[in-house]
Structures are given as C-alpha cells and as structure tokens.
C-alpha cells in the first residue's frame, strides 16, 4: 500500500493525535464512573476512591488524604498534565497544529473550537458538577473520531492515527480493569465499568448474568465484535501495521511492533474465557507492557529523527 511513505514527523503527530483524543475520551468515561460512586455511595471512602482513580490513570500521588475536588482538578482540568482530560485535548491540539496541512480542515476546526471552549466549560462545571464537562468531552471526542474516519483519506497517515487510538484504548481498558483487580472495594462495580466503556447494552444482549465478574472481564477483553474490547483493538492495531509496512517485501523485516502485538493476541486468543478472572492480573500487566513495547518499536522504526544536531562554535583565536 505504501510506496512513498510520509513525513516521519507528520506520522508521529498523527499517531499522538489518535492517542490523545482517545485518552481524553477514555479518561472522561472512567472519571464518570467514579463520580457516580463518589456522589451516590454514602459509605464511600473519599480518599481511597480518589487514590484508586489516580492509580488507574498511572498518576503517582503522595500518601495523604485526597479530596474529590483536588483530584478532579488534576485528572480533569489541569491543562499542564498530559494525562488529564484538558491536557490530552491540548496535546491533540498541539500535534494537530503541526499536522494542520494534513488533517482535514473540519477536523482542525473541531479540535480548535473544542480547545477554545474548554475554559468556559470548566467554569460552568464548577457550579453544576463535572458531569456536563465530561459529557461535552465525550461528545467532542466522538465528533473528532467521526471526522477522522469520514474526512481523512484512509492512507498511511490515517492508519498511524488509528494505530495510536487503538493502542491507547488497549492501555486504558487494561488500566480500568486493573483498578478493579487491585482495589476491589474502592473501585466502581463491574456494571459501572461496562457503562464507562459504553458496553452495557452490548454486554446485556449477550448474557443474562449481570453480576458475573468473569463474564464482564471476558467481554471487555476477548469479544470479537465489540470495538472497545482489547482483542478487537489488538487486531485493528495489527491491521494498521500490516498496511503501513512497505510493499514488495516477501520476507518480513522483523517488525518488533507486530511481534509484540502477535504475542499478546496469541495469549488472548487461546485463553480459556471461564478462567479469565484468575489470570487477569498477569494479563493486564502483559498488556500494559505490550503497549509500551509497540509504541517504542513504532517510534523507532517510523518516527526516527536523527539526534538533534549540536554545533560546536569554536572561539576565535
């Protein structure tokens, strides 16, 4: 498919646009499921719940009492933090600025107006709670995902974006499940997870047992048709890589990214779904490592810049 390739810098920007938009979306979904719990559950331990939320998102916090307000500030509104929702959208915007000649103008306008709108939404959510902010973010990320698929040519640039999106999705789903595994009583229940993944209806249509933890985990990990399941995203990421690699190579060039994906897919393909819950901790760890490895390998192979040139300026004699 790809004979000429595309600018490495551009490919990298698109990859990160994919990741950041997905990160904003997923973070909004996760925070939403927690907010429910924080607000609705009278026996909720505020500090522990916040801690669990931080650990899911991979943010280290000091050993102190955590408050909901500050937690939301860090995870939702803090534009300086690339793991927060505002920070992720800003990251997508910064990368879009660098690839503005490539992405469609509709995508650019959508991202630009979203970023301009965030401070207003933040102000409003201070009076009305974070739910409106979160739903705005989910609406906009859906719009952006739709525009990505409907207004970009499905060429290598688009594939890098979709690759980024799916790696982030795997990573976030793994984190979500891990929150449940690690601190059972402070994380939302399984149903909230399904809701957070937008998978409630899809799951219910397939099963009658709503409190079956193993069933929920298996659905989020292994379902072949649900687009947010881990296996589905792994397959999609691999398809992108297959199409990105240069044509005409009869012998594979030893693609480290595909190798890492293949390992993860192999493990998930042949697992016994009924035993899934027991192996979940190791599987989730493996998935997080896979995402790291794939990102490294793709960066290495496709985004490689030469090291920045540094000139030694010699002093005059």
């Amino acid at each position: 498919m790809s004979e000429r390739g595309m600018l490495s810098r551009l490919a990298e920007s698109l990859f990160w646009i994919g990741r950041y938009i997905e990160r904003a979306d997923d973070t909004a979904r996760i925070v939403d499921s927690y907010v429910h719990r924080m607000v609705e559950d009278p026996f909720n331990d505020e500090s522990a719940t916040c801690r669990s939320l931080f650990s899911i998102l991979g943010i280290e916090v000091e050993n102190q009492r955590l408050r909901t307000g500050e937690t939301l500030q860090t995870i939702v509104y803090d534009i300086e933090n690339p793991n927060s929702i505002a920070g992720a959208l800003n990251g997508a915007y910064e990368n879009a600025r660098r690839s503005r000649d490539y992405i469609s103008s509709e995508m650019w306008v959508a991202l630009n107006t979203t970023r301009n709108e965030l401070p207003k939404r933040e102000k409003r959510s201070r009076d009305f709670g974070p739910a409106t902010y979160l739903s705005y973010v989910r609406e906009r990320t859906s719009l952006l995902a739709g525009l990505t698929d409907a207004t970009l040519s499905h060429d290598d640039g688009w594939r890098f974006l979709v690759l980024g999106r799916n790696l982030e999705r795997i990573d976030m789903t793994a984190r979500l499940l891990r929150g449940r595994v690690v601190s059972e009583e402070n994380a939302p229940d399984w149903m909230a997870f399904l809701r957070a993944s937008g998978a409630m209806e899809a799951f219910m249509r397939n099963t009658r047992e709503i409190n079956d933890a193993n069933g929920v985990a298996a659905f989020l990990m292994l379902d072949r048709l649900f687009p947010r399941s881990v296996l589905y995203s792994l397959n999609l990421a691999d398809e992108c890589l297959v199409e990105i690699q240069p044509v005409g190579q009869r012998i594979s060039s030893g693609d480290a990214a595909r190798q890492a994906l293949a390992r993860a897919r192999g493990t998930l393909e042949f697992i016994d779904p009924r035993q899934l819950i027991d192996q979940l901790p190791e599987l989730l760890e493996m998935l997080e490592a896979t995402c790291f490895r794939v990102t490294d390998a793709v960066t290495d192979r496709y985004f490689r810049h030469e090291d920045a040139v540094v000139w030694n300026i010699e002093e005059g004699l």
């Binding site: 000429r4 390739g5 595309m6 600018l7 490495s8 810098r9 290598d156 490689r304 810049h305």
Partner: peptide, 9 residues
C-alpha cells in the same frame, strides 16, 4: 532529502 516513514525521499 526529507525523512519519511519509508526512508528518505
């Protein structure tokens, strides 16, 4: 040359 995902062009 410019650096692309498929080598230099």
């Amino acid at each position: 040359y410019m650096r692309t995902t498929n080598g230099e062009r």
